[in-house]
């Protein structure tokens, strides 16, 4: 046998290999485009479905209307939009301070063993199906609100701002917000923690080296340099909370009204769509009106997401350039 016999015929494979590579990259490119196409397709479909409604009613009357009586042809979205905002904002008020502090503790103080236990736990919390949070809300939070919070609120003879209600059930904005807060907290902790750990150790050392305490370093160096990132993580949490459907729907009461108190029942946009789509579809415009609700929700969530992504990207870019 000659030495030649052991050589592989390399030249023969070169052409097909290159072609494979080209085809492969095209296939992957198309696959990568799918999310973008989906996003556009969903938005366009919702707009088309909403068009009949928009032809009949002015945008102002839809967004500003407080009456939702499909049988009478009244489609005012304001109760749903404001319910969404009430629940979401209250959830953030509850969730944000402890989440930010937890993130700061985990990244700045916690020992390695604690961090390596807490991170998976937070990930697990974020992975629990939302219907389970809903059940937990019905079993624990709603009775707590009903038996503790409402009697407390009623103990003020002249009432208390944001706590007055004639809803005795415990199903309402506060319950929804508490459940939602527990759901978005792990997410805010994770994003904030990531932002903090992106700050190089050397920055902390520069502060500690002149005799600053850890707390001073956090207050004067870390928070100022991650403020935008923390803000973005809150906005991301906001957009998540806004779209959350199942758990909120189960505890929020689902009454169409303009809420005046955190103990009132309310009807957020996702619950409206989830509860009603597919029923009573013979009512004129009803289908279109529910699609309109979906479109409003989508636009609200998209705006928040895009804004926070831009903030985070700019911040991270700056972090990388500066340090």
């Amino acid at each position: 046998m000659t030495a030649e016999a052991h050589k592989l015929p390399l030249g023969q494979r070169l052409f097909p290999r290159r072609q494979h590579d080209r085809i492969g990259s095209k296939v992957l490119f198309v696959l990568t485009l799918i999310p973008m196409i989906l996003l556009i397709a969903i938005t366009v479909a919702l707009v088309i479905k909403t068009l009949p409604l928009l032809r009949e009613y002015s945008l102002a009357s839809l967004l500003g209307g407080t009456e939702w009586k499909p049988l009478k042809g009244l489609f005012g979205y304001l109760p749903f939009i404001s319910a969404t905002l009430w629940v979401t904002i209250l959830a953030l008020v509850i969730a944000v301070p402890p989440s930010l502090l937890t993130a700061i503790y985990l990244s700045e103080y916690a020992s390695k063993p604690l961090r390596s236990v807490m991170k998976p736990i937070l990930d697990l919390l974020a992975a629990i199906p939302s219907v389970i949070y809903g059940v937990w809300g019905m079993l624990v939070i709603v009775p707590w609100v009903q038996n503790k919070v409402i009697p407390f609120a009623n103990s003020f003879p002249n009432g208390f701002p944001l706590l007055n209600t004639d809803n005795p059930t415990g199903f309402g904005i506060l319950s929804g917000a508490i459940v939602l807060a527990v759901m978005v907290a792990p997410f805010i902790v994770a994003v904030t923690n990531e932002v903090l750990t992106a700050v190089p150790e050397g920055i902390r050392h520069a502060s500690l080296a002149v005799g600053a305490t850890r707390l001073q370093t956090i207050q004067r160096v870390l928070i100022p340099s991650t403020r935008q990132g923390m803000f973005a993580s809150v906005v991301l949490g906001f957009s998540r909370a806004m779209g959350e459907t199942m758990a909120v729907l189960m505890v929020v009461g689902n009454v169409v009204q303009m809420p005046g108190s955190i103990l009132d029942a309310a009807y957020p946009l996702p619950a409206l769509i989830a509860n009603n789509y597919g029923e009573m579809m013979s009512i004129p415009m009803y289908d279109s009106a529910l699609m309109g609700a979906a479109l409003i929700l989508l636009v609200m969530v998209l705006i928040l997401n895009i804004a926070s992504t831009l903030i985070l990207r700019r911040l991270m870019g700056r972090v990388r350039r500066a340090w």
Binding site: P200, I203, A206, A209, V210, S225, W323
Partner: peptide
């Protein structure tokens, strides 16, 4: 406070 530090590369506070 008693011991100033010059690190391998400078880190500016923000």
């Amino acid at each position: 406070k008693k011991t100033g530090l010059l690190a391998q590369r400078p880190y500016m506070l923000p």
